[in-house]
Design a protein around this nucleic acid. Structure first.
Length: 591
RNA sequence: GGAACUGUGGUGUAGCGGUUUAACAUGCCGGCCUGUCACGCCGGAGAUCGCGGGUUCGAUUCCCGUCAGUUCCGCCA
């Protein structure tokens, strides 16, 4: 930098700085060359600053300014001055001042970037990811990273104030049979053996409780080798928390306080506590989701009883076979065309619904292809139950409970989006509690833990662990924000006997349990305290607060949907020598 | 593993329901310009329309396959 020192940031200069001689460094946002007068907007992380070059700048400096192009890296020394009357730019925080350059050094030249370095650009995401270092120069991207930093910092601040200890846990760890697919790392020292990257620090944090840490947290990187989504990346960051000597209410209350703190520090807003609370059964029954979006209504209404008595065989037989018939009232949507209803029918088919029955509430009364199967009293009863008025559209799905929930649960969100029922400024939190302890896996023909196999059953349900697993409820809870699962946790098992029963319930024989989790069972014999915890998705939280549609926009270097890094071209083939050292032979089929 | 959508100069788009010199904006290059801030004006370069095959006299356009991206289902304790 040839002896120059950046003594001011571009974005920080104000009218009160007039007269100062300063040196700024940054990137050329734009050059406006008027022949005898050149303006350069210089950009750094803190903002934009207009620099003026005129003949008084000196011939050499002026001609150098003529050669400057976008994204060149410059060091400029000059004097801050007030802009002449009528040339103030209200769109810039530095719009009242400009710098009269006396010296210009080109610290580095730049090729023309493949896309504009500015907000609101609509470049192809693949191009943005390939040139992520340029994409991240855009102020909106930097704001997202800044917000992410503030959130993580507020978390640390809050937990530190509450006596929590941040402890790091291993990245090279042991593969576990339950849960997501593991990323594996071959061991050179132990031929044929593998480490796994952690899906979460779950067992380590429980061990830390046995160690007497009492209050632990970690901003932990987690890895799951599963397919990606807009809100799912193969590596992601969790705020992982665990506490000893607490019950569910202690944790929920503390986490609400933490969210209040985070929102105060990062969004400058006050959020209301306590959060709404729903049981899993309520959430599924009324909203068709275990992560309900409570910003709008469109609740699911059960019309099974009426449907069972109708002549509509499709409905009646579903009810008689233990299924459900439920509907939602899309208020004011009777205007929907046949085409739109077909679209919605295709939409619910994604979730397994075999059809979408509907009733349009017209001026002439209920109009529907299925109306003829109902006597007037039944139609009236349905309309009454669903609070239907002229202009509304009632839509129904009849199927097994899970299909009804999922299809109508997604449909209500789709209708809310189409009808603009969602206030984008609202942050609506709730807790979902009382999850089932198990769910039945039809492929593996066994019960599996819904949360994870270290989750404590409700005391009164311990007796069902082996006799009637489907009946057991868990001391588990999820925090939900605007229909997105922000975090989840549970009170853990700390009793060796209960833990052994748990393993037995998921059809893990004692020898296997010993082999996989022997250290946990051992630890429980040395004075394990009652404990529980929770983990939050930092990426998702940042996405919601930044009002982005994908977590890729709040991750510096995210993966594409096929789990590749567009910038580094990972994953990649490696040298045969590397494979030999690891005793690995690949068996990729020839195309 | 499956479904849908997308792929045209550097970037963002248009196009033709078969035959065009492939259009527009912006960016880029050159020239002019002392108050602009998405500066302006003049001129110029830049695309075998993702890839492969098929139909046809002729394909950017129609069909099939493939690759890549995105969204979703499955999967994600």
């Amino acid at each position: 930098m040839a002896g120059l020192k950046k003594d001011h940031n571009c974005g920080e200069l104000r009218i009160t700085d007039c007269g100062k001689q300063i040196t700024v460094m940054g990137w050329v946002q734009r050059r406006r060359d008027h022949g005898g007068l050149i303006f350069i907007d210089l950009r750094d992380r803190f903002g934009l600053l207009q620099v003026v070059f005129n003949p008084e700048s000196g011939a050499e400096t002026f001609s150098r300014a003529e050669s400057v192009r976008n994204e060149y890296v410059l060091a400029i020394t000059g004097v801050v001055g007030a802009r002449p009357k009528g040339t103030v730019n209200a769109n810039l925080t530095t719009g009242e001042v400009e710098v009269y350059a006396t010296e210009l050094r080109i610290l580095n030249k730049a090729k023309t970037p493949p896309f504009y370095i500015e907000d609101n650009l609509e470049a192809d995401e693949m191009v943005r990811l390939k040139y992520r270092y340029l994409d991240l120069r855009r102020p909106v991207m930097q704001q997202a990273l800044i917000l992410r930093h503030k959130i993580a910092f507020a978390m640390r601040e809050f937990l530190n104030q509450r006596d929590f200890l941040e402890v790091e846990t291993p990245i090279l760890t042991k593969s576990s049979p339950e849960g997501a697919r593991d990323y594996l790392v071959p061991s050179r020292v132990h031929p044929g053996e593998f480490y796994a990257l952690p899906q979460s620090p779950q067992l380590f944090k429980q061990m830390l409780m046995v160690s007497g840490i009492e209050k632990y947290f970690q901003v932990a990187r987690c890895f799951r080798d599963e397919d990606l989504r807009a809100d799912r990346q193969p590596e992601f960051t969790q705020l992982d928390i665990e506490m000893s000597f607490v019950d569910r209410e202690d944790i929920l209350a503390l986490m609400e306080e933490m969210m209040v703190y985070i929102f105060a520090k990062t969004m400058n807003t006050t959020i209301k506590t306590p959060f709404a609370r729903l049981t899993y059964a309520e959430a599924m029954g009324v909203y068709g989701s275990d992560k309900p979006d409570l910003r709008f209504g469109l609740k699911l209404v059960d019309i099974g009883e009426i449907a069972a008595q109708s002549d509509f065989k499709v409905f009646a037989s579903v009810v008689n076979n233990g299924g459900q018939v439920k509907g939602i009232n899309a208020v004011g949507c009777a205007k929907y065309s046949r085409k739109e209803i077909d679209e919605l029918t295709n939409f619910v088919a994604i979730f397994g619904a075999k059809g979408l029955a509907y009733i349009q509430m017209t001026e002439e009364g209920p109009k529907s292809p299925i109306a003829k199967f109902f006597i007037p009293e039944q139609l009236t009863a349905i309309c009454q139950k669903m609070n239907a008025k002229t202009g509304d559209l009632l839509m129904f799905v009849a199927d097994e409970p899970m299909v009804v929930a999922e299809s109508l649960g997604h449909l209500r969100v789709e209708i809310a989006k189409r009808e603009g029922l969602i206030d984008p400024e609202e942050f609506n939190f709730c807790w979902v509690v009382d999850f089932p302890l198990f769910e039945y896996n039809t492929d593996e023909k066994r019960w599996v833990a819904m949360h994870h196999p270290f989750t404590s059953p409700m005391e009164e349900d311990v007796k069902y662990l082996l006799s009637d697993p489907g009946k057991a409820k868990a001391k588990a809870y999820d925090m939900v924000l605007n229909g997105v699962e922000l975090g989840g946790g549970s009170i853990r098992i700390y009793d060796k006997k209960v833990q052994e029963q748990m393993f037995a319930a998921i059809s893990m024989d004692p020898a296997e349990a010993r082999g996989k989790f022997g250290y946990l069972l051992d630890a429980f014999e040395y004075g394990a305290p009652p404990h529980g915890g929770i983990a939050f998705g930092l990426d998702r939280m940042t996405m919601l607060l930044a009002k982005k549609n994908t977590i890729r926009d709040v991750i510096a270097f995210p993966k594409t949907q096929s789990a590749t890094c567009a910038m580094m071209q990972a994953p990649s083939l490696v040298d045969a020598k590397q494979l030999r050292e690891l005793y690995i032979k690949t068996t990729v089929p020839e195309k």
